[in-house]
Each structure stands twice: as C-alpha cells, then as structure tokens.
Design a protein around this nucleic acid. Structure first.
Length: 555
RNA sequence: GGGUCCGUGGUGUAAUGGUAGCACGAGAGAUUCUGAUUCUCUUUGUUGGGGUUCGAGUCCCUACGGACCUGCCA
C-alpha cells in the first residue's frame, strides 16, 4: 500500500523525481512497457512491468502497453493475448494499448524526410556484403558504393521498395551517419528491409518493415514517453535513439537503461525458453517449471508475491544474478497469510488405534488458517485406522526425533496423542502397520503429567482419497545454466525437476476448486492445477516446500 | 591495439563527501497442537594501488575483474 514511500528510491526513480520537481515534465510522467509479441512474458518482464507501471502509479503518470511488432516473421496474436493476460494478472492496467505497427505510415514519411535531407540512402549491398563493409570492433568500416546516391534517386528507389518492385532482401534503406564510428550501431544502420510477410496487425499492407532502431524511439516520441526504460544491452543504441529524435526534431523521450533480471537455476531469455518448449523439455510455455509468468501462475505463485519480489530486487545498472531463494521467500510469505491449511500424506503408513472404538462416526475440528481467523474451521473424519507419513516413524529414533517411535508418543494434529506399542512387518521385513494406543483424554487438551513435543499430520484410512500431486524442483542442476558456452544449456537440465506422485488427502480436498492454493501442513504450498484438474478430481502442483530445519539438519 | 557500462557480506540492495544499514540465506536460542509461522541473537562486505579532502563506499587517476556491442532480431 504505502510501502513505496518507505523504500529508498532507485536511480531511475530519482531521475524522475528530479525531472518532476524541476518542472521538466509538463504533462507528467509517461512510461511504456514495450514487449515484442514473439514469446511469453517471463520474470524478467515482470521486473520491467513493475518498474514501468509502478513508477506511473507512484507519480500519477501513465504507462502504455505497446507491442513492438516490427518483425512479422516471429510474431503472432497468440503471444499478444498471452501478454495482455499476464499483465492483467499482475494487476496492472495499461493507460493505452498501442502497436508500433500503427505508426508505420508516419515512420515511412519520416524515412522520406531523412532521405530528402541526405541523411538516408537506399543500399544494394546484400547482408553478407554489408557485414564486410561494416568493419569490426577494432577497425573502421568502409562506405557502401551506394552511399552517395542523390536524394532524388533515393526517394524514387525507396518508393519502389514500398511498391513492391524489388525482391525480398534486394535493397535496404540505411541511415547515413559515420562508417568509422566506434559504436557499430552508428555505421549506417539499417532502417527498412524488404520482407513479404503477413503481419498479424497490418495484414499485407506492407512489404517493407522498419527496424527496431528506426521504430522504437519514434514510437516513444509519438506517445510522448518521457522516460523510456530498457535493459542494459540497449545502451549502445542510445546514441542512435537520440540521433533520430534530433534529426527529426520530434518529442525528446529519454532512454535509461537498467540491468535485466537473472535468477539462479533457471534461464531467462526468450530464445532459450522457446527452445525448451519446442524441444519438448517442458510441457509448453505455462509449464509450472518455467520462469514465465504463465508458468509460475500455474505453479501457484501469486501476483502479490511477484510484485513483492520485484520490489525486493531493486533496480540498478549492476549485472547481477538473484538467488531464487528470494523469490521463494516472497511466495511463502504471501501464501502463509492467505492459504488455507489441509492435510495430505505422501507416503502412507497405516496406524491402527487399538483402543479406539470400531465404528465410531467421529470428526475433529481443524483450523483453516491460523494466520487468518476469518478462514474458520472444518471437520475431518477421525477413525480407528489412519495413515501417517512413513518418514514420521523411526524404529531406532535418535533423541532429537520428535515424532513417532516404539514406546514414544506423538500428537496427531488437531486430534489425540498416540503411543506406538507395536510394529508390524511383512515377510520382507518391511514395516506395514503400527499399532498404537490413543489417549482419549487429549483431544484439545494437553496430556496428563508429560509433555509431547511432536505433532504429525495424518488422514483417516478409509475416508481419505488419492490425488495426483506434481512435485516440482529446480529446472536446472547448476546455478547459472549456459554459463559455460561449451556445454549446451539443455544438458544442464535437472532430470528430476518433475515427479508425479499420488497422495492420500483429507476428503474436503476433493472439492478443491482449480486455482486455489493450500498449505499441506508440514509439507508445503500446493495449488489445484488450472489445466488438469477435473471436478471432484483435483491435480495438485507443489508451489514451494515449507522451510524445513529438520530435513536440513539430517542432510 | 576499439567503444560503452558496471564492481558494497554467500546473494540482492541502501548509504546522494560525515556512525557501512536492510532483506534473503546460513548458524544459535525462545515460543509453538505445523521441526512452519513469529521473536531474539550471531556471522560475513566497500576489488587492489595512488591522489583530492579535516573526513572518501561516494570525487579524480590507475590497475584488475565482469557485462554488452561486428542481425536486413528486439
């Protein structure tokens, strides 16, 4: 709510605050989030979305959603719809929805303007030749043979390009800047290429398409974007960005770069994510192991958790890699407050309460969420035969094992204290059943004259149901997949990132509505999957396990 | 023998020339009908070297380290 004001402002926030107070921004702050619709949004985009929309919110400005759709070969409406859905889910509402392709006509006349001013020319060099002429990082380039064509000739040629009189790739429009510039982006960059492709937004209206460089800054300018925030790799493009604004004499948007988000144990580039999807390493863009917005949504992350996370990581120009633990903390923190508690047993071990009446129809009352009294209580059937977690029993238990062991007592969560009297094994020596004594005086009351430290979860044997649960682990086995350029990043995938198991769940869970999150007590947070759950037969995804200081101690 | 940007605990960040702080993680303890949560406490840091200054994480120089740039991708 008001937490932004407490947190110290990052460098971009400060620039904006300064511009605002110095009266530089006549119409207030205008930002934009400019995705290319060529893939699904990921956590890196979430950082940018929170930055751009967050700043607009904070300073009562506006943030546009603009599709940077200048490359019809790679873009599609499927991506556009997914992007809009993800932004909405994060809780942001664009001031306007724009398409760079809506500016194509304006861009075209600006190109003509540069041509007439002798600042752009049509070049016949093919891609390969152009590369050769460009020079290298340490050597200057040399001028194209077409560099000195007259404005008249260039105009006629460019008009023919638009009219479709040349083949794809045959000619190109270039800016005329400086072939010896140390910044290669200034060595007569491409402005327009010929490409006969169907565009998802403009259809077949064009056979020439402007490049990113010739589109982005002018689009910002047209929308009166005051602060154009982008990632570090565009730093080298800023001189070009400014060059177009100066040559054209248009609204001066200011580009400011910040570091993109990197997270341990995952990859964060659309190219790599696309590869994971296309090669079938994951089950689609919204696979819960993916760092996509749609993936983590299915995984059970909340918008609140993602926004808190983005707040935590901050905004700087330092190229860092954030520990995934920060993300996990954010989601536990939110889910702890809002998720109702339930019980589920993953590796059932039968417990028979020898002194408990045979056919008694009893229930115990369980609190739905101790963090939220409003969440109320529920009844769980309690019966003579139960399942507990196999790992909650140990035949030779160490002193610090606060669970069940021969002769030892433990509390059944929300029910009675029981004592293990007998261990039944099968022919193979496998433990198949525990025979326990139930202290009937301990329902909602402490045991007489002794203290029982351990509390374990359980489900009634006959009345619990089996449900499919998907246990997700990190997608990669190394902190920085793809770091070693010699190893394909797909070889660093974690073969155990998905385990499908059956769990015995308390009966009420069968009614779990898809998309609802729960804490399975002592285990972790889970969400009823929105894609594969059927009415009465939910499938659960593990969002994140609970912190476990005992498991850590054991190693 | 190119250009641009960046170096603060293990990780992410704050300190805007004036006490190096916060969060996560890790460790110890308290509380607990979740070995969760909560609460205490502990741990570890300004890349190196010069300079300016009463005073430098902050300004200057330099070395070192890292990122990005040679698409008609964005």
């Amino acid at each position: 709510m008001s937490e932004e004001s407490e947190k110290s402002a990052h460098f971009i926030d400060q620039i904006i605050a300064d511009d605002l107070s110095s009266g530089k921004l006549a119409d207030g702050l205008q930002t934009r989030f400019p995705p290319e619709p060529n893939g699904y949004l990921h956590l890196g985009h979430a950082k940018s979305i929170c930055l751009n929309f967050g700043l607009a919110e904070k300073y009562k400005g506006r943030c546009n959603l603009r599709f940077d759709d200048t490359n019809p070969d790679k873009e599609s409406v499927e991506y556009i719809e997914a992007i809009k859905r993800d932004i909405r889910w994060l809780g942001f509402l664009p001031n306007r929805e724009c398409f760079a392709s809506d500016y194509f006509e304006q861009l075209y006349s600006w190109a003509l303007e540069l041509i007439d001013a002798g600042k752009a020319y049509v070049c016949d060099l093919n891609a390969e030749a152009m590369r050769a002429y460009r020079g290298t990082l340490t050597e200057p380039g040399k001028p194209s043979p077409c560099r000195d064509r007259s404005p008249e000739e260039n105009r006629a040629l460019f008009e023919k390009m638009r009219a479709g009189e040349f083949a794809d790739g045959e000619k190109i429009l270039r800016a005329k800047i400086d072939m010896a510039h140390p910044n290669l982006n200034m060595r007569d960059p491409a402005l327009y290429r010929i490409r006969r492709a169907h565009h998802h937004h403009t259809g077949d209206a064009w056979c020439i398409y402007p490049t990113y460089d010739f589109t982005h800054g002018q689009s910002d300018s047209l929308e009166h974007v005051t602060h154009s925030l982008c990632t570090l790799e565009f730093e080298d493009h800023r001189p070009l960005y400014n060059w177009f604004i100066e040559q054209l004499g248009i609204f001066p948007s200011r580009q400011i770069e910040f570091a993109r988000l990197n997270l341990t144990y995952t990859v964060m580039s659309k190219r790599r994510l696309l590869e994971l999807v296309e090669a079938g390493h994951v089950n689609g863009w919204d696979d819960p192991r993916m760092p996509t917005i749609s993936g983590i949504r299915r995984r059970g992350y909340t918008p609140r958790a993602v926004r808190d996370f983005c707040e935590t990581i901050g905004v700087t120009k330092f190229n860092s890699t954030t520990d995934i633990a920060l993300l996990e903390h954010a989601v536990r923190n939110d889910l702890n407050r809002v998720a109702q508690r339930r019980m589920a047993v993953f590796e059932p071990l039968k417990v028979v309460l020898t002194n408990y009446p045979e056919d008694q129809e009893a229930t115990v009352e369980a609190i739905n969420n101790p963090e939220d009294p409003q969440a109320g209580v529920r009844a769980i059937p309690f019966t003579k035969e139960l399942f507990i977690e196999r790992s909650d029993f140990m035949e030779d238990a160490p002193k610090k094992f606060f669970r069940l062991a021969p002769g030892r007592e433990v509390r059944l969560r929300y029910a009675y204290v029981i004592r293990c009297d007998e261990v039944i094994k099968d022919a193979a020596g496998e433990i198949v059943e525990l025979r326990c004594h139930c202290d009937m005086d301990t329902l909602g009351a402490p045991p007489e004259g002794r203290k029982v430290k351990g509390v374990i979860h359980w489900v009634p044997a006959d009345k619990s149901k089996s449900a499919e649960v998907r246990l997700f682990d990190r997608l990669f086995t190394v902190e920085r997949p793809g770091r070693d350029k010699a190893v394909p990043f797909t070889e660093e995938l974690n073969p155990e990132s998905l385990k499908i198991v059956q769990a015995m769940v308390e009966p009420s869970l069968l009614q779990a509505e898809a998309g609802r999150s729960f804490q399975f007590e002592r285990v972790g947070y889970f969400i009823a999957d929105t894609r594969d759950s059927e009415p009465g037969a939910p499938v659960f995804n593990r969002t994140v396990p609970l912190r476990d200081s005992w498991g850590k101690q054991k190693g």
